[in-house]
């Protein structure tokens, strides 16, 4: 059920996103940062689900708050003439990698245990 809703949402997003009007180039950096933040939240959610401590409220609030905060930070950085978005990217991408590692390890361990079970 959850997977179905994800697929429907993605399809709708692709269709509308392709047909959406062009955003001015000046705003594209904000969009990019918000995308990175949202992706980070998604991977964090997946890893926490695998760990078993997934909280839906934390996930949703993280998804939106991270995106908005990253946009605000980027804006502040542009006003201060400091590339704060670089720091944002470093943090989020680093966390994404950690979460990906967790996901990978989880499935590898699962696979290993299955193999051992089969052997036995």
């Amino acid at each position: 059920m959850v997977i179905l809703s994800i697929i429907i949402g993605c399809l709708l997003g692709v269709i509308i996103g392709v047909n959406a009007p062009l955003i001015p180039y000046a705003y594209s950096s904000y969009l990019a940062i918000s995308i990175i933040a949202a992706l980070d939240s998604v991977f964090g959610g997946i890893s926490s689900t695998l760990k078993g401590n997934f909280d839906f409220k934390i996930f949703v609030s993280g998804f939106f708050c991270n995106a908005i905060l990253s946009i605000l930070l980027t804006y502040l950085g542009q006003k201060l003439n400091v590339d704060i978005y670089l720091a944002t990217i470093v943090v989020f991408v680093g966390r994404m990698f950690t979460n990906l590692t967790i996901i990978r390890r989880h499935y590898l361990e699962k696979w290993n245990t299955k193999k051992e079970q089969n052997k036995q």
Binding site: S28, A38, L39
Partner: peptide, 11 residues
């Protein structure tokens, strides 16, 4: 997921 993909494709 809709919002995420929408923004991604716009970008």
């Amino acid at each position: 997921s809709f919002i995420l993909v929408l923004v991604m494709f716009m970008q």
